[in-house]
Design a protein around this nucleic acid. Sequence first.
DNA 1: AACCGAACAGCTGTATACACCAACCGCCGG
DNA 2: CCGGCGGTTGGTGTATACAGCTGTTCGGTT
Lengths: 219, 219
Amino acid sequence: MRASERAYRALRDDIVEWRLPPGTLLAEVEQSGRLGVSRTPLREALGRLTAEGLTTAGGRGVMVTAISLADIDELFELRETLEGRAAALAAERGEPATFRRLQAALLAAPALVTGDTPAVEDYYGLVSDLDAAIDSAISNSYLVQAMRSLRVHLVRIRRMAADNAARLTAAAAEHAAIAEAIADRNPRLAQAATTLHLHRSLSHIKATSTSLHNTSTSP
Amino acid sequence: MRASERAYRALRDDIVEWRLPPGTLLAEVEQSGRLGVSRTPLREALGRLTAEGLTTAGGRGVMVTAISLADIDELFELRETLEGRAAALAAERGEPATFRRLQAALLAAPALVTGDTPAVEDYYGLVSDLDAAIDSAISNSYLVQAMRSLRVHLVRIRRMAADNAARLTAAAAEHAAIAEAIADRNPRLAQAATTLHLHRSLSHIKATSTSLHNTSTSP
DNA sequence: AACCGAACAGCTGTATACACCAACCGCCGG
DNA sequence: CCGGCGGTTGGTGTATACAGCTGTTCGGTT
């Protein structure tokens, strides 16, 4: 694999996993030494990160961007616009059988997040499958790319919130409702179910991330 | 100005103005010689162009991407989603006086595109002012950035279509209707006016670009 | 003691040299 | 005559050296 790609993925993962907290200065020589690549591919990686909005290139060096509550509101406003439309388009153009299968899997998902050995990653994999199925169904590469650029930020936000079993169980039901509406070829219902899910998700994030925000800004 | 920025703007302008037609291979050494910069900043410029979708980096070198009619359909599908929502948000949050002024200017715009010395650039400037006013009113940087990344492609498409005085006159009235709905703080009407305008615009492009497409694909 | 200025240090921006890779072209065998 | 194959050539990917700039800090001045 190319060195620039390795550097990009390593930095992106470090940022979304909060190993590189907001405000961290990413000096080129320092990071190139840490990641074992030269400055040239590292610069390319930093450029990609900055284009995505994960870092900002101001004055001296690039810094990991902060995420304020206002940013989360804006992000979800755009997300509702894009994913609502995407769900509606998927209902118009998707293969019902695919989404019927996903609906069944999501209805069984609560068993994944409760119990002794919660397989939360498997649940997230299911959600990714639904996203991928929607992406494939709408057959609009520009819309897909716009949503993809949002998902990076959303993963970062997810790590900020406290995902407990109760919320994940409810979210699985909401996702199942979206899949069902798409399988039923009902665009308006699919969009409404998406809107509902995103509002619930945003409410949960805002309710649980406030405390995190307070602790992170304590001296 | 930085060399990488100069190279980026020069290449982007060359592409959207169709001086570099689709399929052109942008070899690094060749372009760096043509633009008078070294390969390093040129690579950064090519990376930005590829991230925006104006070029594709496949195999040997980057190529200027083609725009098919399907691409235009997809682009306008996303555009309607984003700009419709943007217009609605502007109606909710914007300053009515600003859009009232723009409405008046747009109602007087037909005089710009008809007559002996058509000031088409002035008309496009007015449309840009309306876009900027909407961007400023919605106060959502993520949505603004998503629309901005679309506008580059739209300029390229505009050069493909034949903008005659009749279409520009009608478009001015459609833009005035959008501005009026925002000034009236009527989100649903603003969204509907945007949808109408984009559909008319797309119809015009498809009607006039077909012949161009045929000539460009002739042996 | 506070403020201003200039030298300094570290960084980014750019240019260039080298290694590797992938596509083309000619050649050989079937 | 056609298909597979190795040499060749130009390209990209990477590393490094140098120049310019910006933020900092120390010293002097008021």
